[in-house]
């Protein structure tokens, strides 16, 4: 079974500070880590490989320093790392990013499953995973918390929903995004870390993947960020006091008012 794990390098959110003037992240001096949700994706990919054989390829789109994320993925059991990096990708929103990654995935000859974390801790959009599946025109299952069965043809998974969970079966190849309930990521081995240090990574630029330049980077990103702000803390609620009869009628009145 060949598995592709899509990962993203993000600032360590436990250390992140927001510039109060510009409302953007202060990235200086903040360590970069693999997006925490992607750690579960890597672990699940490596577990599938350990069970079924095959290969796990980690892929990331980002600046050259994102190489560190790929090396960490290799230390955790991935076999290869592909860095998709080009100035032409700068300014990509989730549409352009998922398009670029999908085109890179197409270049990898065969794969059975693509695994992504449910969302990245910096943007929190949860759009890139589903976007890749859409660009590749393959089935997708989001918020997977358990892979119940897998064989060469299909995969049966349990996905989290707001109400509970659903069990779905999808033909392969498909894309899944995973939640933290799915596993407990391992600690790397020393041999894995040493292998990762020496590993030769593949680097693809825009010209290496068969893509439409108009759909890359800023050009390919319809998202317009109008304003970024820190939301005000939630205001204190109002507590109605009195006997239930009275407070219920008052509540109904208030709800009616708020609709109008």
């Amino acid at each position: 079974m060949n598995i592709i794990v899509c990962i993203k390098q993000v600032p360590d959110t436990t250390q992140v500070k927001i510039d109060p003037k510009t409302n953007t992240l202060i990235r200086e001096g903040v360590e970069s880590i693999i997006n925490p949700f992607d750690m579960y994706a890597i672990e699940e990919g490596v577990r599938l490989k350990e069970k079924f054989g095959g290969k796990v390829i980690a892929i990331t789109m980002g600046p050259p320093q994102a190489e560190a994320a790929l090396r960490e993925a290799i230390s955790l059991g991935c076999d290869d790392g592909i860095l998709v990096s080009d100035r032409a990708f700068a300014g990509s929103d989730t549409l352009a990013t998922s398009y670029t990654l999908a085109m890179a995935v197409k270049k990898i000859e065969t794969f059975d499953i693509i695994i992504c974390g449910k969302q990245a801790s910096d943007g929190d959009t949860a759009q890139v995973g589903p976007g890749i599946a859409a660009h590749l025109n393959i089935p997708q299952v989001t918020y997977v918390k358990h892979i119940k069965e897998a064989d060469e043809e299909a995969i049966t998974v349990e996905r989290m929903t707001e109400e509970g969970s659903e069990i779905l079966r999808s033909p392969l190849p498909c894309l899944i995004t995973v939640v933290k309930e799915i596993n407990e990521p391992r600690i790397p081995s020393l041999k894995g870390k040493m292998k990762a240090k020496k590993a030769e990574l593949t680097c693809w630029k825009a010209i290496d993947i068969d893509c439409d330049d108009e759909r890359l980077g800023l050009n390919g990103s319809p998202t317009q960020v109008v304003r970024i702000f820190t939301p005000p803390p939630r205001a204190q609620g109002e507590i109605l006091e009195g006997d239930p009869q009275e407070t219920t009628s008052k509540l109904v009145e208030m709800l009616k008012d708020s609709i109008q």
Binding site: I187, K193, K197
Partner: peptide, 18 residues
């Protein structure tokens, strides 16, 4: 050596997380 630093990092991670 780089390898010894790697050992330290790995053991520190195990110490902190486990």
């Amino acid at each position: 050596t780089e390898e010894q630093e790697m050992i330290r990092d790995l053991c520190r991670q195990i110490t902190d997380e486990k």
